[in-house]
């Protein structure tokens, strides 16, 4: 049971991370910076609860806001470049953040032990959940409430004017400008929102693992962050969730019985999935079929 709850938590947090990249990908930008924002949110939220004794919700909001503001500052220069250059720029930023935490020491005494980030040793003893009597189930519920709130917000955004603007920039920048859309403002906003969402994910992550270190926020995590929405498809937010379930639930956990062969198959299956479903797991056709299924059911209910 605990294993399943743990997996539920992991899927929730990774979906939040994937959604943070989803927003940026809508504008056609590929970002490898999401692990950096995730790390900022994680460290700051954990420091606020562990060292300053804050409640977790404001701590996470502050951590996410800092990540969002940093994204905004980084976004202005970074988004002047596109494509591969942006990949390089955001990778460099992600590594910069990781190495910052690698060198960051700030410990204070709490009872008999020292707590706080300790450079390469990481940040141990983030014991907010056990200290406040949260069970694994409570934590899983907490994560999913936040995840669903983010998904609903993005779903609504997707269907609003803001979503249309993001997609317009993603489809054709020149055409978007010709109807009067401000490219820089749109991209930087998407980047900041993505940074904020990644920061929220990081804040939860730090607390449920209780121990974070710089290596958690490497390029590998950043790669996962963009792999989820790309594999899931950019048609709507549910694609990202399905992709996380597919990768973390089915590939990583489901293939465990295969031992070392798992890693080989893991990559191969993602390649197969992208070939079979080049527009993502949840593409326009799936959306249409599901939509039709719901409408006929409603039609029957009405009759």
């Amino acid at each position: 049971m605990d294993f399943l709850l743990g997996l539920t938590q992991l899927i929730g947090v990774h979906t939040i991370l994937g959604l943070s990249a989803y927003v940026v990908l809508l504008t056609g930008q590929v970002t490898i910076a999401q692990a950096g924002f995730f790390g900022i949110g994680a460290y700051i939220a954990a420091m606020l609860t562990t060292l300053a004794g804050w409640h977790i919700v404001p701590a996470m909001l502050v951590g996410a806001s800092v990540a969002g503001v940093v994204a905004c500052i980084v976004g202005f220069p970074a988004l002047r470049v596109k494509g591969l250059m942006l990949v390089v720029a955001t990778t460099a930023f992600g590594e910069f953040v990781r190495l910052f935490w690698f060198n960051f020491d700030y410990q204070i005494a709490k009872g008999e032990i020292m707590v706080g980030p300790e450079g390469g040793e990481g940040f141990k003893q983030i014991r907010y959940f056990p200290e406040n009597g949260w069970t694994t189930g409570d934590v899983a519920l907490f994560i999913w409430v936040i995840l669903i709130a983010i998904m609903l917000a993005l779903w609504w955004m997707d269907r609003s004017r803001a979503g249309a603007v993001l997609r317009a920039v993603g489809e054709d920048e020149l055409a978007a400008q010709s109807v009067g859309i401000n490219l820089t403002a749109t991209k930087v906003t998407a980047f900041a929102v993505g940074g904020f969402i990644a920061g929220i994910g990081g804040g939860i992550y730090a607390h449920y693992t209780t121990h974070i270190e710089h290596a958690n926020f490497s390029v590998l995590l950043a790669t996962f962050a963009i792999a989820y929405p790309i594999l899931g498809g950019l048609t709507n937010v549910t694609g990202t969730l399905f992709a996380v379930v597919f990768i973390q639930g089915i590939l990583v956990e489901g293939l465990r019985f295969m031992g070392d062969w798992r890693n080989l198959l893991f990559g191969a299956l993602i390649v197969v999935a992208m070939n079979v479903r080049p527009r993502g797991l949840i593409d326009e056709r799936v959306v249409m079929i599901v939509g039709r299924a719901f409408s006929t059911r409603k039609g029957r209910a009405d009759a």
Binding site: A164, V165, R167, A168, E171, D172, L174, A175, A176, S178, V179, G180, I181
Partner: peptide, 17 residues
């Protein structure tokens, strides 16, 4: 330079941005 993956109606709405 229409927005290829938006519907015709969405393209028109984008024009009124």
């Amino acid at each position: 330079l229409v927005f290829p993956e938006m519907t015709v109606a969405e393209n028109l709405r984008a024009g009124a941005y």
